[in-house]
Amino acid sequence: MSALTIRRWTVGTIAIFVSVVVFLVPFAFILITAAKTAPEASQLAFTWPAEWQLWNNIGAVIADRNGILVRAFINSLVLTVASVAVMVIFAAMVGYVLQRKRSRWNPIINFFVLAGLIVPPAVVPTIWVLQGLGIFKTLGGLILIEATFGLSFCILLFQAFVATIPRELDEAAVLDGAGPIRLFFRIVLPLLKPVIVTVIVVQSVAVFNDFANPLYFLPGDANATVQLTLYAYASSATSAGALNLLFADILLITIPPLIMYIFFNRQIVAGMTSGAIKG
């Protein structure tokens, strides 16, 4: 038993040491660089800041270019909330009916759901469609895009979860006089709460961190999202020698996912591992 305890401690200590070097040092680097003065930050050294400038730097980043970062945070927030809301409701409706109703269309629908997961979206033709609809370069257009690209993943999660809700419940509700809409929104949707939380958390992080779709479908400063401003800031801050501000920006943008992780650790894990068991 003591041999096991020794192994537990030695292996654990080595693992903790390696994890500190590999995983914590990069995050510590972000924090200390964000706290330095511009000349000190440009040395890229892993040293404690001579002067602790974190709040000044964060203030400077927020004030930069008439507060574009604040606007970007608002845009990203609207984008995330709206697209995830659309995803949840639309995908829950599909997942529910797809699981409950046996029809010969099911294999075809399942095929398209999987295709949506695998096929990379065609960029320029999508812009062409958005232009045709008059929603290219609008936040609304990007909300619909993000919602569409996230649908397949959500449908699969909902479909799997609805299978665990007994059918008898639906029948009982119908016997009590509920119509299909009441049945879904008042009875089934509340029961889907665990999977809804998972979907919300996983997709919010995905949409908030998305770079490629805003880059293609929402170019321009007027509606910039946080990832776009960070990317644009990278070139201007580097040329201006203001790496401390760049890393203060990275720090700010890392905070929302960090908060999500602290509060919803379990749901994130559930969402990411769904399907791991059955393959």
């Binding site: 409706m93 109703k101 449908i155 639906d170 299909p180």
Partner: peptide, 18 residues
């Protein structure tokens, strides 16, 4: 009690934008 039109909102997005 499982109406097929529940597919329509998601299908509309999927078809038009994907």
């Amino acid at each position: 009690i499982y109406p097929s039109w529940f597919y329509i909102p998601a299908a509309a997005l999927y078809i038009v934008l994907f």
